[in-house]
């Protein structure tokens, strides 16, 4: 009942703003490549989802950091929104606590898995060199 909603909401808004930037970069790199030809993101030419380009991006530490940040902010923004939707359905106090904790645990697990995936992908890409 007394969670700091001012802090949670402020982070929700900040995460939304940061996502605009990160999602913008993702869109430029992945979907607007024909228009902008960002060679640093797709050094092997061709489609951004060609294995050679995916491996090249995965090797860069900046890309790993980018993926982890993207994942963290997207998870926070989305799961906070989901929590709000569920809490507005008028659950009992016990159920509201369960929802909040369940979403927190799900977020942490998904973030840990995503982070591991980004780091593991880099190791795989480096090993394939």
């Amino acid at each position: 009942m007394s969670s700091n909603n001012t802090r949670l909401w402020t982070w929700h808004v900040l995460a939304g703003l940061i996502l605009v930037v990160l999602l913008g970069l993702h869109m430029f790199g992945m979907h607007l490549n024909d228009l902008f030809h960002l060679e640093s993101l797709n050094p092997e030419g061709g489609s951004p989802i060609d294995w050679a380009n995916v491996a090249a991006r995965a090797q860069a530490i900046g890309q790993v950091v980018f993926y982890i940040l993207f994942l963290g902010f997207a998870l926070y923004h989305g799961l906070y929104g989901l929590r709000n939707i569920l809490l507005e359905l008028n659950p009992s106090e016990g159920m509201a606590k369960f929802i909040s904790r369940g979403i927190l645990i799900a977020g942490v697990i998904l973030f840990a898995f995503g982070t591991w995936a980004a780091i593991a992908a880099r190791s795989t890409a480096l090993a394939a060199l």
Partner: peptide
């Protein structure tokens, strides 16, 4: 106002 009764919803 930082609690659930605040303006956040």
């Amino acid at each position: 106002l930082s609690s659930e009764i605040g303006p956040w919803r």
